[in-house]
């Protein structure tokens, strides 16, 4: 969550309410899990860690609100996060999705490049698992188990193809 917020702030400074609205819009029905306080708590943590700075902006008759902006250290961390491929090679869809949204909106990385890097990892995994599966006699228990791993990796790869198509179309 810290990385996602940092990346969204890297595009333009924003206040907590804005960030929450943008996350909700990106997540759709899955955004219901997003705790109202979570964004604010995370922002305070980022501020304490020196990754964002906050300044108060007046808005007439309503109370002032805090506008957050990443520090150089914060920007560096976002860049690292975007370049980092999950070594487990099987990130939860929501985590990867938010990374892609953050990359696209901050323009700090090309989401399609992130998808490609992730896909290389998954394909390596699939190649390994498949090689093991082909070495097992068909119909054996281990072959069945490996088949499960293969099918899940295939599903992940299909979703990555959909992600690549989504962000390729948006570039055009």
């Amino acid at each position: 969550m810290q990385d996602v917020l940092l990346a969204l702030l890297a595009k333009e400074p924003a206040h907590g309410y804005d960030l929450r609205a943008r996350l909700r819009a990106a997540l759709g029905p899955l955004g219901g899990d997003l705790n109202d306080g979570q964004v604010y708590v995370t922002l305070r943590r980022l501020e304490k860690a020196g990754l964002v700075t906050a300044r108060l902006v007046g808005q007439g008759d309503r109370p002032d609100r805090k506008v957050y902006e990443p520090t150089p250290a914060g920007r560096e961390r976002v860049a690292r996060w975007l370049a980092d491929v999950d070594p487990a090679a099987r990130p939860a869809p929501t985590d990867l999705y938010l990374k892609l949204v953050a990359a696209a909106s901050s323009r700090l990385a090309d989401p399609v490049d992130i998808v490609d890097a992730q896909r290389r990892e998954l394909l390596r995994r699939l190649a390994d698992v498949q090689r093991a599966a082909l070495a097992e006699p068909a119909g054996s228990g281990p072959a069945l188990l490996l088949e499960g791993a293969v099918l899940r990796l295939q599903a992940d790869l299909r979703w990555l193809d959909a992600c690549a198509a989504h962000w390729t179309d948006r570039k055009k």
């Binding site: 490609d116 896909r119 290389r120 394909l123 699939l126 498949q130 295939q154 790869l157 390729t168």
Partner: peptide, 20 residues
Amino acid sequence: ARIAAAADRLITMRDGAFVD
């Protein structure tokens, strides 16, 4: 993806070009 992962090397094409 299974056939692709059974290769020695895999090339990804988009819009007529090799991209990965």
